[in-house]
Design a protein around this nucleic acid. Structure first.
Lengths: 246, 246
DNA sequence: GAGGTTAACGTATAAAATACGCTATGTCTG
DNA sequence: CAGACATAGCGTATTTTATACGTTAACCTC
C-alpha cells in the first residue's frame, strides 16, 4: 500500500479483522511484519494509513482487495480506536513513518471486519506478496500495537451479529455445506455447544437452505446431505425480530 | 469549544447524538448554528474538531460536559463517518474554518450517542450558552452537514441495543417511574405497540425493579405504583441470552 | 355519581425451547 | 466380512415463553 507519490493523511488509518473458517476453526488473516512468525507480537492486522480525500469505507475495501485479490467481500465497520497513546512503542512509530514516508503524531484507526470463504482465498499469493497467513483465532494471544484489542472487539461484534443475522455464518462457509458445518461455525463463534438434534430441528425451519441432493464423500460416518444458502429467499422470508429482553 | 491557543487536528472530529425522554416522546439535543431555529437545516449535532493528542472517547465526553454541565453520562461510540465529500457545502466548510481557525480538507467524524435523564439537564443554561434545545426526534426532518444520517444511525443502534439491554431505557427515565413509563419509552424507541397487560407481565419477572410503595399523584386515572431501577441487581441477575435466530 | 382512563391481576391457548431416545448409513479395523 | 464407531437424521415428551384477551380497581372531571 506504500507508494512514492501517495499523499497519506498522517492521522487516519483503517485496519481489517479478516475472519475465515476452515470447517473446524475460526481463522484470522494476519500479516507478519518481519517475515518470520516466531514471535506473535510481530503479527499485525492488515491495514493502512488512508490517502487524502479517500472514503474510509472504500479504502478499507481497497486494502482488502489488494491483500486477498477478492472483490465484493463482506466488509463492515467495527469500531474506531482513538486513544492518544495507541502507538506507544518507538519502533512501531518508526515503522509507520518509514513505510508511509510521513511524520506521525497520533493515529485514529477505524477498524473493519470482513468475512471470507477461505476456499476462495489464494493462500500462496497472500503469503508470497504480503506475508499474510490464516491463523486460528483461539491461538492468537498478542498482536502488534493495539491490534489484539481490535481483534477482541471484532470477536465480540461477530458473536452479537451471529445471533440475529445467520448470514454471518454463511459468508464464512463454502458454497456447499452440511448442517453440521453450520453448527460447528456457530459453536466456534459463540463458544456455546448446541444439542445436535435441536440445532438441526431449528435450522430445518429456515426457508433459505436449499438441499442439493448431493452427499459428502470419504467421511468415516454416514455422509451428510449438502445444502446451499439462498440469499434471495433469506431476504424475502426474514421475519421481524419482535422481542426485547428483560 | 473554540479557543485561541487550542491546536485542533483538522481532519478528526466527534459528534454526539444526545437522546432524552420527556415521558411522552423521544427527544434529541440540537444546536442552532444561527441562533434562530426557523430553518431545520441549520440545526446540527453537538460536536467539535478534536484537539491534537486527545483521546477520542474522552473528547466526546468533554463536548458533552461543556454542553450539558453533566458528568458521568451514558456515552457510547456509534459509528464513524468518513466519506471524502461529507462537507460538501462551501458555507459549512467556511463555518468550520472560521470557528476553529484551521484550514480543512476532509473530516472523519466519529459519532457517539448519549442517554440523558432530561430532568437532570439544565435547559436554560444549555439554551443561553450554546443555543441548544431538546427537539422531538420524530419531528426532525433535516439537519446540517450529514448529521441527519448520523441521527438515523443513532436511532437504528438505539433500537437494536434496547432489545438486549434494558438499561438503555432506564438511562433515559427519571429516578422514579411507573411501569407505563417503561412501556412508553419502549414504544417510542422501537415503534412497536405492546399489549399493556403482557408487557407488564414480562417486566414483572425482572428482579431489578424495586417498587417504592409510592404512587403517582394528580393523574386522571388510577395512580400507578412508582419503581426504581436497581443497577446492581440488574448486573447480578442478568441471564445469558443463549439464543440465535434463523 | 356517571363516565372516562389507565392500573393491576388473571386465564386460556399457541409457539418455541429444551431434553433426550432411537435408527440409518457410511468408513475403518481385525 | 463382521462388528465397532461416528455422525446423520427422525421422533416424542416436557417446560418455558409469547400472545390474546377478560375483568376489576382507583383516580379524575363534569
Amino acid at each position: 500500500m506504500s507508494d512514492a507519490v501517495a499523499q497519506y493523511n498522517p492521522s487516519i488509518s483503517v485496519d481489517c479483522v479478516v475472519f475465515g473458517f476452515d470447517s473446524k476453526n475460526l481463522k484470522i488473516l494476519l500479516i507478519d511484519q518481519n517475515g518470520d512468525s516466531l514471535n506473535d507480537s510481530k503479527l499485525k492486522l492488515p491495514g493502512s494509513l488512508v490517502r487524502k480525500n479517500r472514503d474510509l469505507d472504500e479504502y478499507a475495501d481497497l486494502v482488502l482487495k489488494e491483500l486477498t485479490g477478492l472483490d465484493n467481500v463482506f466488509l463492515r465497520q467495527l469500531y474506531t480506536f482513538g486513544s492518544a497513546d495507541r502507538i506507544s512503542l518507538k519502533q512501531d512509530r518508526e515503522w509507520i513513518e518509514k513505510t508511509y514516508s510521513v511524520s506521525i503524531r497520533r493515529i485514529v484507526s477505524t477498524a473493519y471486519y470482513s468475512l471470507i470463504k477461505i476456499d476462495h482465498s489464494n493462500e500462496e499469493l497472500m503469503e508470497r506478496s504480503h506475508n499474510a497467513r490464516w491463523y486460528n483465532v483461539s491461538s492468537v494471544r498478542t498482536l502488534a500495537l493495539d491490534h489484539y484489542r481490535i481483534l477482541t472487539k471484532g470477536l465480540e461484534v461477530l458473536r452479537m451479529e451471529l445471533r440475529f443475522n445467520p448470514i454471518i455464518g454463511f459468508e464464512l462457509l463454502p458454497e456447499k455445506f452440511s448442517l453440521r458445518n453450520v453448527q460447528t461455525i456457530y459453536e466456534a463463534i459463540t463458544g456455546i455447544n448446541y444439542d445436535n438434534r435441536n440445532f438441526r430441528k431449528k435450522l430445518g425451519q429456515a426457508k433459505y437452505l436449499t438441499p442439493l441432493g448431493e452427499k459428502q464423500k470419504g467421511v468415516a460416518h454416514k455422509p451428510a446431505l449438502l445444502y446451499r444458502f439462498d440469499k434471495e429467499k433469506y431476504f424475502n422470508t426474514r421475519k421481524e425480530i419482535n422481542l426485547f429482553y428483560i
